[in-house]
Design a protein around this nucleic acid. Structure first.
Lengths: 106, 106
DNA sequence: GCGTATTGCTACAAATAATGTAGCGTACTG
DNA sequence: CAGTACGCTACATTATTTGTAGCAATACGC
């Protein structure tokens, strides 16, 4: 197919440009939403599911694994998913989106 | 299913919070990438397709329509897709992502 | 101990979306 | 008219998402 790198690990990275891999990772369903919901406090897997309009645990778990491998999210030892330092940085990038969205709803 | 608002127009907007609708729109395949590729110059539909690793015209066209309805992208009268003023604002929000990605590639 | 409730996580069939290829109709150029 | 590029669509194959149910592990009160 047109995509899928040889490794099968991250799509959209054939050019080797990290932005593409990042855009692809964030461009999967629920990725952005998950980061957004964790923005200011960790959540349990079920809490996260509730926050995400009861998305199916299958995708949520898949995204969570991807985001963990990417180093944006981590599973605390007491349970509950939270952002890593890197994840918080990434999330901070998206914060202006909130204001933008309010302006956009027209 | 767990999502889909009554109108069927925009998913993830059940709460009425515009951010959710935005996160959902941007969280579809190729949405972010399209905005990214148009970041500094308009492209023809075929040029955009080439820029997007030869993604299938079916999705590209679908995303393009959605992004146009959202007011982020427009089709110039001489042909070629470009960002609207609003689209440029949105895209500007994502620009720090480039630097972040470089730092992230570890 | 036993029940109950929570945690993170998985199976699996059905529904939905994306892919790849081909091609349409409309222009514009020579 | 022949060649080319545009935006866009059909359609069968493949991949992803959905929704529901449930697992093993860990904790609680009793």
């Amino acid at each position: 197919m047109a995509k899928q790198a040889a490794s099968g690990k991250v799509r959209g990275s054939r050019t080797g440009r990290p932005v593409m891999a990042l855009l692809d990772l964030l461009g999967r369903r629920w990725s952005l939403r998950i980061l957004w919901e964790l923005r200011d406090a960790p959540l349990t897997s079920r809490g996260l599911r509730t926050a995400c309009d009861d998305a199916s645990p299958t995708v949520l778990q898949a995204r969570l694994t991807e985001l963990r491998e990417a180093g944006f999210v981590e599973l605390g030892d007491g349970g509950g998913y939270g952002l890593t330092a890197l994840g918080r940085d990434l999330c901070a990038t998206f914060m202006p989106l909130h204001r933008f969205a309010e302006r956009w709803k027209k």
